[in-house]
Protein backbone atom coordinates (compact mmCIF):
# COMPACT_ATOMS: atom_id res chain seq x y z
CA UNK A 1 0.00 0.00 0.00
CA UNK A 2 0.91 3.63 -0.11
CA UNK A 3 3.55 5.02 2.22
CA UNK A 4 2.62 5.93 5.78
CA UNK A 5 2.36 9.49 7.07
CA UNK A 6 3.01 10.65 10.59
CA UNK A 7 0.25 12.64 12.22
CA UNK A 8 -0.15 14.35 15.58
CA UNK A 9 -3.67 14.91 16.78
CA UNK A 10 -4.88 16.21 20.13
CA UNK A 11 -7.79 13.91 21.02
CA UNK A 12 -9.91 14.67 24.08
CA UNK A 13 -7.08 16.80 25.40
CA UNK A 14 -4.35 14.19 24.95
CA UNK A 15 -1.63 14.42 22.31
CA UNK A 16 -1.77 11.30 20.10
CA UNK A 17 0.55 10.21 17.32
CA UNK A 18 -0.07 7.85 14.46
CA UNK A 19 1.50 6.34 11.39
CA UNK A 20 -1.34 6.21 8.91
CA UNK A 21 -2.06 5.55 5.29
CA UNK A 22 -3.21 8.73 3.55
CA UNK A 23 -6.52 7.01 2.76
CA UNK A 24 -7.28 6.10 6.37
CA UNK A 25 -10.55 7.67 7.44
CA UNK A 26 -10.54 9.72 10.60
CA UNK A 27 -13.25 7.50 12.09
CA UNK A 28 -11.05 4.43 11.61
CA UNK A 29 -8.08 6.23 13.13
CA UNK A 30 -10.18 6.99 16.20
CA UNK A 31 -11.76 3.55 16.44
CA UNK A 32 -9.08 1.14 15.26
CA UNK A 33 -5.85 3.00 16.08
CA UNK A 34 -6.83 4.80 19.28
CA UNK A 35 -9.52 2.37 20.51
CA UNK A 36 -12.07 5.17 20.89
CA UNK A 37 -15.03 3.06 19.79
CA UNK A 38 -17.68 5.44 21.06
CA UNK A 39 -17.69 7.06 17.62
CA UNK A 40 -19.84 4.79 15.46
CA UNK A 41 -20.25 4.03 11.77
CA UNK A 42 -23.80 3.69 10.44
CA UNK A 43 -23.55 4.38 6.72
CA UNK A 44 -21.05 4.94 3.96
CA UNK A 45 -22.50 8.09 2.42
CA UNK A 46 -22.09 10.79 5.13
CA UNK A 47 -25.82 10.47 5.79
CA UNK A 48 -26.37 9.10 9.28
CA UNK A 49 -24.08 11.21 11.47
CA UNK A 50 -23.27 8.38 13.95
CA UNK A 51 -19.58 9.25 13.45
CA UNK A 52 -19.91 12.95 14.35
CA UNK A 53 -17.00 14.43 16.33
CA UNK A 54 -15.76 17.96 16.92
CA UNK A 55 -12.65 19.15 15.07
CA UNK A 56 -11.31 22.40 16.49
CA UNK A 57 -14.73 22.84 18.06
CA UNK A 58 -16.75 22.37 14.86
CA UNK A 59 -18.87 19.30 14.18
CA UNK A 60 -17.51 16.93 11.57
CA UNK A 61 -18.62 13.57 10.19
CA UNK A 62 -15.44 11.63 10.79
CA UNK A 63 -16.28 9.02 8.12
CA UNK A 64 -15.80 11.74 5.53
CA UNK A 65 -12.45 13.13 6.62
CA UNK A 66 -9.06 11.51 6.35
CA UNK A 67 -6.97 11.03 9.45
CA UNK A 68 -4.22 13.12 7.82
CA UNK A 69 -6.64 16.06 7.66
CA UNK A 70 -6.75 16.01 11.45
CA UNK A 71 -2.98 16.43 11.69
CA UNK A 72 -2.24 19.29 14.08
CA UNK A 73 -5.89 19.67 15.00
CA UNK A 74 -7.93 19.11 18.10
CA UNK A 75 -10.60 16.41 18.11
CA UNK A 76 -13.30 15.83 20.71
CA UNK A 77 -15.16 12.51 20.73
CA UNK A 78 -18.02 11.37 22.90
CA UNK A 79 -15.48 9.89 25.32
CA UNK A 80 -14.26 13.42 26.00
CA UNK A 81 -17.61 15.01 26.89
CA UNK A 82 -18.12 13.88 30.49
CA UNK A 83 -15.54 15.30 32.88
CA UNK A 84 -14.32 14.10 36.28
CA UNK A 85 -16.72 11.16 36.22
CA UNK A 86 -19.67 13.55 35.89
CA UNK A 87 -22.02 13.48 32.93
CA UNK A 88 -22.15 16.70 30.96
CA UNK A 89 -25.49 18.51 31.44
CA UNK A 90 -26.36 17.54 27.87
CA UNK A 91 -25.76 13.87 28.63
CA UNK A 92 -27.80 14.22 31.83
CA UNK A 93 -30.62 15.75 29.83
CA UNK A 94 -30.54 12.88 27.31
CA UNK A 95 -30.94 10.44 30.17
CA UNK A 96 -33.69 12.37 31.93
CA UNK A 97 -35.70 12.89 28.74
CA UNK A 98 -35.27 9.28 27.56
CA UNK A 99 -33.59 10.58 24.42
CA UNK A 100 -31.85 7.31 23.58
CA UNK A 101 -32.83 3.69 23.15
CA UNK A 102 -30.33 1.45 21.37
CA UNK A 103 -27.69 4.14 21.82
CA UNK A 104 -25.98 3.66 18.49
CA UNK A 105 -26.74 7.11 17.07
CA UNK A 106 -26.39 8.70 20.50
CA UNK A 107 -22.70 9.71 20.42
CA UNK A 108 -23.21 11.51 17.11
CA UNK A 109 -26.38 13.16 18.37
CA UNK A 110 -24.60 14.35 21.50
CA UNK A 111 -21.73 15.82 19.47
CA UNK A 112 -24.05 17.63 17.03
CA UNK A 113 -26.10 19.01 19.90
CA UNK A 114 -22.97 20.03 21.77
CA UNK A 115 -21.82 21.97 18.73
CA UNK A 116 -25.20 23.70 18.47
CA UNK A 117 -25.16 24.72 22.13
CA UNK A 118 -21.61 26.01 21.82
CA UNK A 119 -22.78 28.48 19.18
CA UNK A 120 -26.31 29.10 20.32
CA UNK A 121 -27.11 28.90 24.03
CA UNK A 122 -30.83 29.47 23.47
CA UNK A 123 -31.83 27.50 20.39
CA UNK A 124 -35.44 27.42 19.26
CA UNK A 125 -37.13 24.12 18.48
CA UNK A 126 -36.64 24.60 14.78
CA UNK A 127 -32.96 25.47 15.26
CA UNK A 128 -32.52 22.25 17.25
CA UNK A 129 -34.27 20.22 14.57
CA UNK A 130 -32.04 21.74 11.91
CA UNK A 131 -28.89 21.15 13.96
CA UNK A 132 -29.54 17.41 14.27
CA UNK A 133 -31.01 16.94 10.79
CA UNK A 134 -27.79 15.27 9.70
CA UNK A 135 -28.05 12.65 12.44
CA UNK A 136 -30.39 9.74 11.84
CA UNK A 137 -32.09 7.89 14.66
CA UNK A 138 -34.41 4.93 14.11
CA UNK A 139 -35.45 4.35 17.71
CA UNK A 140 -36.62 7.56 19.32
CA UNK A 141 -38.50 9.43 16.62
CA UNK A 142 -36.37 12.45 17.65
CA UNK A 143 -38.93 14.22 19.87
CA UNK A 144 -37.24 13.26 23.13
CA UNK A 145 -33.87 14.27 21.66
CA UNK A 146 -35.25 17.69 20.81
CA UNK A 147 -36.65 17.92 24.35
CA UNK A 148 -33.27 16.90 25.78
CA UNK A 149 -31.39 19.59 23.87
CA UNK A 150 -33.88 22.20 25.08
CA UNK A 151 -33.51 20.95 28.65
CA UNK A 152 -29.72 20.99 28.35
CA UNK A 153 -29.76 24.61 27.18
CA UNK A 154 -31.77 25.51 30.25
CA UNK A 155 -29.41 23.61 32.56
CA UNK A 156 -26.33 25.24 31.03
CA UNK A 157 -27.84 28.70 31.22
CA UNK A 158 -28.86 28.17 34.84
CA UNK A 159 -25.32 27.06 35.65
CA UNK A 160 -23.80 30.02 33.87
CA UNK A 161 -26.13 32.38 35.75
CA UNK A 162 -25.07 30.78 39.03
CA UNK A 163 -21.38 31.39 38.39
Amino acid sequence: MSSLRSIRVRVNGIEREGQVEPRLLLVDFLREHLGLTGTHIGCDTTSCGACTVLMDGRSLKSCTAFAVQADGREITTVEGVAADGQLHPLQEAFREQHALQCGYCTPGMVMSALYLLSRNPNPTESQIRRAIAGNLCRCTGYLNIIAAVKAAALKLNTRRAAI
Partner: peptide, 18 residues
Protein backbone atom coordinates in the same frame (compact mmCIF):
# COMPACT_ATOMS: atom_id res chain seq x y z
CA UNK B 1 -34.38 6.70 33.88
CA UNK B 2 -32.65 3.73 32.33
CA UNK B 3 -29.74 1.73 33.71
CA UNK B 4 -28.33 1.40 30.21
CA UNK B 5 -27.93 5.08 29.49
CA UNK B 6 -24.73 6.17 31.19
CA UNK B 7 -22.58 3.70 29.23
CA UNK B 8 -24.32 4.59 25.99
CA UNK B 9 -23.94 8.33 26.57
CA UNK B 10 -20.25 8.14 27.30
CA UNK B 11 -19.14 5.93 24.41
CA UNK B 12 -18.88 2.68 26.37
CA UNK B 13 -21.64 0.83 24.55
CA UNK B 14 -19.55 -2.07 23.18
CA UNK B 15 -21.34 -3.19 20.02
CA UNK B 16 -19.98 -6.03 17.85
CA UNK B 17 -17.98 -3.59 15.76
CA UNK B 18 -16.15 -2.36 18.85
Amino acid sequence: PRKEDIDLLTGRGTYVGD
